[in-house]
Design a binder for these strands. Structure first.
Length: 307
DNA sequence: GGTATAAGTAATGAGCTGGA
DNA sequence: TCCAGCTCATTACTTATACC
């Protein structure tokens, strides 16, 4: 089966268990078959059903690739997504992306009714190959052009995970040259090759844990995560309540005058840029260093107008 | 350049055992 | 009784090579 085929099956399994928790093996098998017919998938092997043994392997791979735990309940006589996983925001986001993908697949003749955002290539053509390399523990090589540097450099990497931030995809992995875990934007990556060399996935590496206090793509700065307190005007606060800035977001005050929230994150440049984008609709209350940085940036912007 | 074939690799299923 | 997890054999797919 193609790489696309089995990844598709993983996502269909997750979707079925999300809609109908405690589905039996036979129900899962029937659903995959129906969806393949409905979506007119060309992969014959995918539409031929699959065995229990394959389902067991899929559950293991889904746990590894997506961080979702699927278990069998003897009491309910069916498979289900464990509660802690079902609340995972990444899981929700992934399923939304899957739905969009399916809809666009079906809507190829409906171009007159779709108005898509015009933007440059995001490097998503590498997603399948990279997921395949991560799943099969294969080292990769590619050419990379840094955002601030036009020269190309060849990289040798142990790929560990993929991360999305602001509609862009990033690869997380260990640079074999210096042993450090780094991030690479997929849109700046070319000549990707999956090598024959295998690597051992580090037991102590957990992508959810490593990104827990990160805002954006930049990793831990070496500092401890800080408590960032932000005060939004009510209008902006409504957006922030429906689209939280970070999984750690807690509401401290919610009145007709302000929405005050607390985040626990590393104070990165990505965070600063995000806070500045809210302009006068946001006041940073803590920590002091971040307040000073935001003040300085606004002052410099003010000075540029020569007022 | 296109096609046929071989070899290597990945995905899968069958059958078995252990455990809840 | 049924599921999880293991080994091993089979099948499908991919890639390289030879030939026309």
């Amino acid at each position: 089966m193609s790489k696309k085929g089995y990844l598709y099956r993983y996502l269909l399994l997750i979707k079925k268990l999300k809609m109908n928790p405690y589905s039996s093996f036979e129900e899962l098998q029937r659903y995959i078959d129906q969806q393949c017919t409905y979506l007119l998938l060309q992969d014959d092997r995918l539409s031929m059903g699959f065995s229990k043994r394959t389902l067991q392997r899929d559950i293991r791979e889904i746990r590894m690739l997506f961080g979702l735990d699927i278990a069998y309940s003897h009491a309910q006589r069916g498979y289900h997504i464990c509660e802690s996983s079902a609340e995972n925001r990444n899981f929700q986001r992934m399923m939304e992306a899957f739905d969009v993908f399916n809809s666009l697949n079906l809507a190829q003749d409906l171009a007159p009714y779709l108005h898509l955002e015009q933007r440059s290539a995001q490097g998503t053509e590498h997603l399948y190959s990279l997921l395949h390399a991560i799943k099969n523990r294969r080292c990769i090589t590619f050419d990379y052009r840094k955002f601030w540097d036009e020269t190309l450099s060849q990289r040798h990497l142990e790929p560990y995970a993929l991360k999305e931030f602001k509609s862009r995809w990033y690869l997380l992995g260990k640079d074999i040259r210096d042993g450090r875990i780094k991030r690479f934007g997929l849109d700046r990556l070319t000549r990707l090759k999956i090598s024959e060399n295998r690597f051992v996935y580090p037991e102590d590496y957990n992508v959810q844990q490593s990104q827990r206090y990160c805002f954006g793509i930049m990793g831990a700065t070496g500092d401890q995560p800080q408590e960032v307190v932000l005060s939004f005007v009510p209008f902006q606060g409504n957006y922030i309540k429906t689209l939280p800035l970070h999984p750690s977001q807690e509401i401290l005050v919610d009145t007709s005058d302000e929405l005050r929230i607390k985040l626990t994150v590393y104070p990165t440049q990505d965070l600063l840029m995000e806070l500045l984008s809210y302009g006068p609709r946001l006041k940073v209350l803590a920590p002091e260093e971040l307040v000073a940085q935001v003040k300085q940036a606004h002052q410099e912007a003010f000075n540029r107008y020569g007022i």
